[in-house]
Design a binder for these strands. Sequence first.
DNA 1: CTCTAAGCAGATAACCCTATCCATTTTCCG
DNA 2: CGGAAAATGGATAGGGTTATCTGCTTAGAG
Lengths: 237, 237
Amino acid sequence: MTSRNQNVHGTGGATDSAGQPMRSDAERNRGRIIAAARTVFGRDGLHASMASVAREAGVGIATIFRHFPAKEELVAAVFADRMEAYAKATAEALAKPDPWDAFTGYIEEVCAMQAADRGFADMMTMSFPGAEALEALRAQAYQGFLELIDRAKDSGHLREDFTSRDLVLLLMANVGVLSAIGDSAPDAWRRLVAWMIQSFQAPARGPLPDPPEDAALYEAMRRASQGMGSSEAGKRR
Amino acid sequence: MTSRNQNVHGTGGATDSAGQPMRSDAERNRGRIIAAARTVFGRDGLHASMASVAREAGVGIATIFRHFPAKEELVAAVFADRMEAYAKATAEALAKPDPWDAFTGYIEEVCAMQAADRGFADMMTMSFPGAEALEALRAQAYQGFLELIDRAKDSGHLREDFTSRDLVLLLMANVGVLSAIGDSAPDAWRRLVAWMIQSFQAPARGPLPDPPEDAALYEAMRRASQGMGSSEAGKRR
DNA sequence: CTCTAAGCAGATAACCCTATCCATTTTCCG
DNA sequence: CGGAAAATGGATAGGGTTATCTGCTTAGAG
């Protein structure tokens, strides 16, 4: 429905969904809003209010809702490029020669991206069924990660009982550390990730409880993104 | 100031802070409120609203605030016994003959307590400077854990670079998993904890980034408990 | 330069939250 | 049983949030 043109920085002139050229002030404000949202979501996480984004952008609240009828759409617009960076990181990891290096480097990088952008951190543990482009990129990255896992297992460096769901678990755990510790110890997450990666390494030191089902993880991620309209915050802290 | 008597279940008659006997209805309602809060906080976490506790208890909102002038006091009253159970778990672990068994069993139990009670989970990553009794128990348990660490290290089963702050990290990570996954995969946390414990085991598989400073953790925990008056959760929450 | 349609911003609605006020009800003691 | 003091609970204040409505401003075409 209301998905505006992505060509915001184009010189020739952006167009809206109906192909009409956007008025210059509208185009300018749209860019400002996205930039402001990038700042605010990155600092405060996805539960930052639309009003705070408006304040940062120097526009009225209504202007934001004109461009992005629901908060979810603003989120999708803002994190399109982060999701691209995420997918790109997967591709780059796949290009590395050493499978274990690729695997661990990838995990560290994704967790670092979470630490650098709290909005991205939240987004990695949510799913947005409405934002197809976003989810397509996520799925693409996920496929790449599956390949990284296979290679690392084949090389004998990764435990056989590691599954892709363990990364999701780690990402959720990382959000817990990041949002609990905040800026008091900005690097604390690195230690958590290091503990986990060393544990992923073969040989196994013992059996593990079963990982959660894929369906359960998906449901949890979908439910997390629901609570963005109207009430609750994480939320949630 | 307004710390009421703890002898709620006494037969003879509870007394208020001034030593006056409480009226029977007041005593009854106080018990109901604490029971309701136990249920609600356990299910929804510490950011559950006072109104929802009132609803569960079948009393008016004002009644709650009469007994507990601030939400923090209700929290302290509700979790006094959980904190005791926590301290008791430490003591019991110290009584175990095998140091590594005691260490791992303790960590698993504390994380299980977090999973069983979302309010407790939140509380373990917060500090309440105003609730001296609570904090005294916490400090006592912490001392016991330090002893557990020493014994486990001396036995050669625990990595030398493990510190007590790593447990805090794990507790925060566990909150992340618990609140992200919710009831979709109630046992997912067990896998995270198992990964971590296997990593704690000696010999070390590699160096680790430095753990956060004690002061940083304390500040983060104190700040987390601040946001309970008036606005936000984590809280996101 | 004028005029119209699109875009803007602030006020507002409707819903959460913590905390307080005060008229009403309940307890309990003589 | 009667009256005074204590306890209650609904309304309300004052703060959040997402989202909408409306009158004013401005862009940009003729």
